[in-house]
């Protein structure tokens, strides 16, 4: 498997100033997917935005892993509700005019 598009975890650890256990905990709880390529742990570059958000919630708000999981789930729900509201508004517009 090619390492193209993947970022080694140890680089992320030094960049975000977190321990390796931080990422293994995230992986364990199912918040991120860690892949092993030639005995090195990686994260796909598309997931960096998610990782950054998690790091901010962890450092800034001191939310633990379980809390972050809850927060992310609720944010996802919120986003889906907003999309639903927008779609319903469009439907309503269909009947109003």
């Amino acid at each position: 498997m090619s390492t193209k598009n993947f970022i080694p975890l140890d680089e992320l650890c030094s960049h975000y100033q977190v321990e390796m256990s931080f990422f293994s905990d995230l992986h364990e709880i199912g918040l991120i997917e860690v892949v092993t390529i030639k005995k090195t742990l990686y994260i796909h570059q598309d997931k960096i935005t998610d990782v950054e958000k998690i790091v901010r919630l962890y450092h800034e708000l001191e939310i633990n892993m379980v809390g972050i999981d809850v927060v992310l789930n609720l944010l996802e729900k919120l986003s889906s509700k907003e999309t639903e509201i927008s779609s319903l508004k469009n439907k309503l517009r269909f009947y109003e005019h």
Binding site: R56, L57, E60, L61, E62, L75, S79
Partner: peptide
């Protein structure tokens, strides 16, 4: 600070 940061953090208020 913690209480208000939890309320207004940009990640929680997209």
């Amino acid at each position: 600070y913690r209480k208000m940061a939890r309320k207004y953090h940009p990640d929680l208020n997209p």
